[in-house]
Every structure is written in structure tokens, then in C-alpha cells.
């Protein structure tokens, strides 16, 4: 992604120390490869989330191993589990406390649509209260599915006009 631009002349005294790229690409490269998750583990999906973080599946390969239990230090909220109406405002508040830029992965059927909980107590999809970037199917999804969601989210981040968003 980041490659020297052959069209631009450079001073041979500093050759090798300068790489020329687009600012967007640099920002997105940084963002997408150090995506610290906010583990919003609310039900059994959280167990798979832990499995994804552990040695066999090793989410650290994608730079997302630093589970931050403080919303102020995290970039990506992984909503892993059933969101009840009683819990929903807290999920939204934690999302509000996260610093921009921030993303949300709805992990599993419950977080995506309420899943099998068609009842008076369950929020019918976390996208009713927070903007979701990636939905993961499964009940619960396998760790590979969550890793795939993370890769998809990284692709999305890499395509985003970060500089325009920053200066807007």
C-alpha cells in the first residue's frame, strides 16, 4: 500500500528515510491495524470473542488484541450478545464515550436483529441505538467469522476519506 513514488525526485542523502504516500492511506493504515476493541460482551457470543482473542485464533494478528474496558481508549465496539432494553441505554452511553473515529461490529444474531429473542425484553437489533458497520451472522459466530468481520471492517476503514473527515 505504501510505496515510494517514482515520479517524485528525492535527495540521495536522505534516500531510504522518506516514503511518499497519500495522507489518507497513512491514516487509514494506522487506524485499521491498531483497532482496539471495546468488548461489549453481553451473552454467549462473548465466550467466542474470548476464543477469538486467545492463542488459537489470535486476533492479535490483525492488531485488535488490546481489549480495552475503557471506552475512552477503544476504537471498535464489538457488541457480543443479547442487548436487553434495560441494557440498551448503557450500550449507547458507552458508545457515546468512545472517542472518534469509532466503529461497531454487531456480533451474532442477537446483536444484529434480536435473534431468537422476539420478546418484550430484548432490543430488536443493536442498530436501533448505535450505527453498525459490520454484522456477523451466527449463534454464536465462530471465531473465524469474527476475524472476517474485522478484516471487512479494516477494508472499510482503508476505503474511507479520513483526511476529508478530519478537516471537515
Amino acid at each position: 500500500m505504501v510505496s515510494p513514488n517514482q515520479d517524485v525526485a528525492f535527495d540521495n542523502k536522505i534516500e531510504g528515510d522518506i516514503v511518499i504516500s497519500r495522507l489518507d492511506a497513512v491514516i487509514n493504515w494506522v487506524r485499521s491495524n491498531s483497532m482496539w476493541p471495546m468488548p461489549m460482551g453481553l451473552a454467549c457470543c462473548a465466550i467466542e470473542l474470548m476464543g477469538t482473542a486467545s492463542a488459537r485464533f489470535d486476533i492479535a494478528r490483525f492488531g485488535a488484541e488490546v481489549m480495552r474496558f475503557s471506552p475512552r481508549q477503544s476504537d471498535c465496539m464489538i457488541v457480543a450478545g443479547t442487548v436487553t432494553y434495560k441494557m440498551a441505554p448503557h450500550v449507547r452511553r458507552i458508545y457515546d464515550q468512545m472517542a472518534e473515529p469509532k466503529w461497531v461490529i454487531a456480533m451474532g444474531a442477537c446483536a444484529s436483529s434480536g435473534g431468537m429473542y422476539r420478546s418484550y425484553a430484548t432490543l430488536q437489533g443493536v442498530d436501533r441505538i448505535v450505527p453498525v458497520d459490520v454484522y456477523v451472522s451466527g449463534c454464536p459466530p465462530r471465531p473465524e467469522a469474527l476475524l472476517d468481520a474485522l478484516i471487512k471492517l479494516q477494508d472499510k476503514v482503508k476505503r474511507s476519506p479520513s483526511l476529508k473527515n478530519l478537516t471537515a
Binding site: Y85, P89, R92, G114, R118, I129
Partner: peptide, 24 residues
């Protein structure tokens, strides 16, 4: 919703859950 601020922000409500296809 239990939290008025969040309800205003998100315009979400406690809704009757769609019954088609569930509960199982």
C-alpha cells in the same frame, strides 16, 4: 426506553417484537 436522553438521541423505543418466525 428507560433512559430519556438516549431515547431522544436515538429515537428508539421499546417496540412490540415482530412475531413472524419466532419465538421458536
Amino acid at each position: 426506553l428507560p433512559d430519556i436522553e438516549v431515547a431522544e438521541e436515538t429515537e428508539a423505543k421499546v417496540i412490540a417484537a415482530p412475531m413472524m418466525g419466532g419465538p421458536f
